[in-house]
Design a protein around this nucleic acid. Sequence first.
DNA 1: GCCGGGGATGTAAACGATTACCGTGATGCA
DNA 2: TGCATCACGGTAATCGTTTACATCCCCGGC
Lengths: 334, 334
Amino acid sequence: MSVTIKDVAERAGVSVATASRALSGGRGVRPANRERVLRAARELDYEPNAVAAALRSRTTNSIGIVVPRISNPFFATLVEAVEREAARGGRGLLLAASQYDPGVEEAQLRSLLDRRVDALIAVPCHREHSRAAIEAAGRRVPTVQLDLCLDGGGGSWVGVDSEAGILASVEHLVAAGARTLAYVGSEPTDSSAQARLDGFRGAAPLCPGGAERVLLGDFSLDWGHTAARRLLERPGALPEGIVCGNDTIALGVLRELARGGVDVPGRVMVTGFDDIPFAELAEPPLTTVRQPQEQLAAEAVRTLTDRLGGGAEPHRRVAIAPELVIRGTTRPTG
Amino acid sequence: MSVTIKDVAERAGVSVATASRALSGGRGVRPANRERVLRAARELDYEPNAVAAALRSRTTNSIGIVVPRISNPFFATLVEAVEREAARGGRGLLLAASQYDPGVEEAQLRSLLDRRVDALIAVPCHREHSRAAIEAAGRRVPTVQLDLCLDGGGGSWVGVDSEAGILASVEHLVAAGARTLAYVGSEPTDSSAQARLDGFRGAAPLCPGGAERVLLGDFSLDWGHTAARRLLERPGALPEGIVCGNDTIALGVLRELARGGVDVPGRVMVTGFDDIPFAELAEPPLTTVRQPQEQLAAEAVRTLTDRLGGGAEPHRRVAIAPELVIRGTTRPTG
DNA sequence: GCCGGGGATGTAAACGATTACCGTGATGCA
DNA sequence: TGCATCACGGTAATCGTTTACATCCCCGGC
C-alpha cells in the first residue's frame, strides 16, 4: 500500500540495493542512475521507512532525554535547545519526564532504551537514587548527565559552574557595598543545591562583615517567603545582601521584603540564580546568574555525537561558566 | 550480542512464536509455558527491540507533537501534560519545535512521519501557511490540532473556548462595577487571537458605558507597555476595566499602570488570559482565564487513541470551557 | 593478450520481532 | 467410537530497509 524502496527501484529500473545507495548519500552510484532513482522517488512521493532503516542499520537517528519536569521553565528551555541541536543533526528527540520520581525515571529510561535511541541525556532527579538506572543506561548507549549530576561524579556531565556563579554574585554584592550577607537556598538534595551552597560558603570570607546566616529549605517561592520573614524578625540584623539559591526563592524573598517595607536595593540587595523569564519582570528586576542553556544543550549533544562518531572520552565533564546579569535588585558597582 | 527473543525462546524450550505470545499479552499460551518464558526473559535480562516490533506490527506506540516553541510556558505545560497522558498509555513522545516557521514545521512533520509515529498532535504555527503540511499529515495518520487551529476548521481540533473565557472576564468586570472597558490584544494572526477579539466584540454590549477602545498589537510584554501608555495619554478617558488578550500583555499593562501611579484595581481593573505561572506572582496578582492544559492534553490524546482504536470521528472538534481565576487585579463582585 | 584492480550493480542475507497458517492432541458430544 | 471443535504450539513468511558478497565490465600495465 505505502510506496517502498522496491517500487522506486523498479520504476528507476535498478535494483533495490542501488536505489538504497542512491537515496542515502549516493556514493558508489553512477550519476545517471542516481538521478533516475531520485526522480522516481520524487514521482512516487516515496517516504522512506525510518523504522526499517533503523532495524537494519542498528541506529535510529534519535536521542532520548529525561527531565524531572517539562513545565519547569528552566528545563523547558533546556529541552528546546536540545531539540534544536538534535534537529540540526537530523536527529529526532524522544522526550520523557520523571516527575522527580526515581522509579518513574527508571521506567522512562528503560522505555527509551527499548525504543533504541542512539544516545541519552538525563537530568537525574535524585543524586543517589537515580544512580542505578542512569549507570545501567550508560552501559548500553552514550549517556550524558545534564545540569544535575549523580554523587561521586561517575559518567559524563555537562552543567554550569555553580560555585563560580555564586562567587560572582558575592563579589558583585561586596563591590556594591554590602557589608553583611545571608544565603537563602535549598537543602543540598541535588548536586546544584550542594554546589551553590558550597560556593557561598567558599566566597563568604570575601565579605567584610562575614556571612551571618545560611537558611536552607527548598527551591520554592514559599520558602523564599518564609526565609525572608525569618530575616525580618530582627530588623537590626537584616543583612545588606541576600544571595538566593535560585530565582524562585529570590522572588519570594523580594515579595516579602516589599511587604515589610524594606527598600531594595537601598537597604538590602538581592541576587538569584537561573535567570528564568520572570526574573526581569520582577519589581525591581532581579539581578541573577544566567544559565547558558543554549550552550549547555549544544555541549551535551556534542558530547554524545562525539561518542557516537567513535571518539573516546567516556568520561567528559564540562562546567560552563555562567554570566552574572545585573539588574535592579543590586546597586551598580563602583 | 544483544539478547533477542530467540535466545529467550531457546532457554525456555519453546519456539519464538510462543515466546512472543507469552511476552505480549500471553493469550493462547499455557500458563506453565508462559511462566517459563517470562522467567527466561528475566534471567537473560531480555530487552525487547521496539524497532523490530514496530516494523512488523506497523505500529510504533509513539506519538509526535509539533509546537511553535517549547520554552513558551504555555506550550511547555501542554507538552508535559501530553507526555504524561501518552506515557500512561505506554506510548513514547517525539517532540519537535517549528519555531513559528511553516517551512520548519513541514520538515518536522515529515520527519515525524518518516519515523512512523502512530499519530500526531500539532499546534499550527500559522492559520493559513500551516494548512498544506498538516492536512497532508492528517491523510497519513490520525492528527489533531491543539490550542490553535487552521482557518476554515478542517480536521480535528481540541482547544479552549476563547470566546466563553473573554465573556466571563467581561461579565466579571461589569459585575464588579466597571462602566467602561477596553481590549488590549493581538492582531488576529492566529485563531486564538481571532477568537478572543471576537469574544470581546461580542461581549462588549454587556458593558453599560460600552467598549470604547480596542488596541491590537502582538502577544508581548512590550505591546502591553505601549498600549497602556496610549491609554494613559488621556487620563480622563481611562477605562475602568482592561481586558487583555493574554497574560503577557496584561503584565505589561500592569507595570505601566503602576509607573503611571494608577491604582489597580481601585481605579482600573485588569484581566489576562492563560494563567501562566507568573500571573499569580504579579503585584497585584492577576485575574485571568485559566487554560486547563491537563484537560486539553487528555482530550487531544483521547481523540487520537479513539481513532487508533478504530473509532470513526475523523472530524471531532472540542472546545473546553475555561475557568476564570479571580485575583487581585479585579475587585470581588457583589 | 593476460591479469589485476576497482567501480558499479545485483542478489540475497540479515536486522528482530509479529503473525498467518497449519498440525497436533485433547476434549465434548452424540 | 467417530467426528467436530478447540486450545496450543511450531514453521516460516513478513515488515522495508541496509549491506556483505559476488559478479561483471572496463581499463591500464606488463
